[in-house]
């Protein structure tokens, strides 16, 4: 009996060491050798989820790199920001998307729900702190093991292929050619601004990680701005506008907020209520490029400058 126990314990210890080495050695190598280089000359970078990913066509904006990624909550953006800023010292300005759905509790599912965690975690697991890992384990221990396994597999694959380049996976402008379809939008549900009888829950975790991103950027002596990309007036998450404004003015009042929500676009400039299509992105990006060129980011009263330009643009386009 004691022989069985001793041998079983020894077997478990050896197996645990083996597993630990398979997990941590590739993880360490990937974290050291990973490359997050962006094209030279990019002084402004943009992080966020699918809204900016579809809105900012960086080929039309000077010295600008769009690093947004669909369904990316701030938890994973934070990991990306750390690596991108540390490996690209020429970056001077960081724009971070801050829009209505990013305060919604749906962001929790984007952070630790299996569907999202299994695709995002393997990408950034090598760069996470213990507190980040603990957060995922705390909220979804069951799926965490599976995501760890996928992550180790991907790290081993990187080791074998000697491919430590993350540039292709970290996001970029996404071109959508389709026009908005009323049927599909109806399924998403337009904003219920009239009744306003729902009180959406807030994702404190996502907001905390936005704070972490800002703190990290400031520690790296980068200028940070919050940005809201254009959204359709019927976009369902506009119903939490009150909460959105409250959080922005209480938690992030020191940070300049560039609100492009009122940028004039037609229905056929949208792919759906939340995303611009290629036509809309082209209009918006060209305008944004002129704005940056006109000194938007240096201006003292940025929102007034934006509103004035929007009025001029409206007048010009009509």
């Amino acid at each position: 009996m004691s022989r069985f126990l001793k041998r079983t314990v020894l077997f478990i210890i050896v197996a645990a060491c083996l597993l630990a080495s398979v997990i941590f050695v590739p993880n360490y190598i990937v974290s050291k050798k990973s490359k997050f280089n962006i094209q030279p000359g990019s002084k402004i970078v943009l992080f966020g989820h699918s809204h900016p990913e579809c809105a900012f066509n960086d080929s039309l904006i000077a010295n600008f790199k769009n690093l947004s990624h669909s369904a990316e909550p701030y938890f994973y953006t934070y990991q990306k920001v750390k690596k991108v800023l540390s490996q690209n010292p020429e970056i001077e300005i960081v724009l971070v998307e801050f829009s209505n759905n990013q305060i919604d509790e749906k962001m929790n599912d984007w952070t630790w729900g299996y569907k999202y965690m299994s695709s995002m975690f393997p990408l950034y697991s090598s760069f996470m702190d213990k507190s980040d890992i603990d957060l995922l384990i705390k909220h979804n221990p069951k799926d965490f093991m599976n995501c760890m396994s996928i992550s180790t597999r991907k790290n081993l694959f990187r080791l074998v292929t000697r491919n430590y380049n993350f540039s292709d996976a970290m996001g970029g402008y996404l071109r959508i050619d389709k026009l908005r379809n009323n049927t599909s939008d109806a399924a998403n549900g337009p904003a219920d601004k009239a009744t306003g009888n729902t009180t959406p829950a807030i994702s404190t975790v996502n907001i905390d990680y936005l704070q972490k991103i800002i703190s990290y950027c400031e520690a790296q002596h980068k200028r940070v701005f919050l940005v809201r990309s254009p959204q359709h007036k019927n976009y369902e998450f506009l119903k939490n506008e009150k909460d959105f404004v409250r959080i922005r003015t209480t938690r992030f009042s020191r940070i300049d907020f560039l609100d492009f929500n009122n940028f004039p676009l037609n229905d056929d400039d949208f792919a759906d209520y939340a995303h611009l299509n290629y036509q809309g992105a082209t209009k918006f990006s060209k305008w944004f490029n002129t704005m940056v060129g006109s000194g938007l980011l240096m201006n003292k009263n940025k929102q007034a400058f934006i509103d004035q330009s929007v009025s001029n643009y409206k007048a010009g386009s009509m």
């Binding site: 197996a15 083996l18 597993l19 398979v22 799926d143 599976n146 396994s149 180790t152 597999r153």
Partner: peptide, 16 residues
Amino acid sequence: FYFSLILTIYLFMGRE
């Protein structure tokens, strides 16, 4: 063989 099996389980386990 046992350790390979354990490693395979870890690396290729599907979602529980």
